[in-house]
């Protein structure tokens, strides 16, 4: 087997990103859309950590920590919105809500 290089990580990262994007674009269930966003962010984190290791520099990891923090904040708010939405509209399907129209 080839030794694992950065390129491996990048390919994995891209793949995970695309999987997440597909999830965001195609799923109707908002909860799963949120999970897909987590996948995208994880793809980014893997990339950051890989390069951090590659350059022997922890800045990338620090960035990853911030990504995790922001992701946590984002999920919290999104789920809050989700609950409010479910209470008012009785649905968690993304294509049944068009409040952004006009």
């Amino acid at each position: 087997m080839h030794p694992v290089t950065n390129v491996h990580y990048m390919v994995l990262s891209v793949a995970l990103l695309l999987v997440g994007t597909i999830g965001v674009l195609t799923r109707r269930n908002i909860v799963i859309i949120l999970m897909s966003i987590e996948l995208i962010l994880n793809a980014v984190n893997i990339n950051l950590v890989a390069f951090s290791h590659h350059f022997g520099d922890v800045h990338g990891q620090v960035f990853a920590i911030f990504v995790i923090a922001v992701a946590a904040a984002e999920t919290t708010v999104a789920l809050g919105i989700l609950i409010a939405l479910f209470r008012n509209k009785e649905t968690v399907l993304a294509d049944e809500v068009d409040l952004l129209k006009w």
């Binding site: 965001v24 409040l99 952004l100 129209k101």
Partner: peptide, 17 residues
């Protein structure tokens, strides 16, 4: 252009992609 403004979040995400 108004037709593009569907109000569905995912169509906006799609436009981003």
């Amino acid at each position: 252009m108004r037709l593009l403004q569907s109000g569905y979040v995912q169509s906006y995400a799609f436009v981003i992609v």
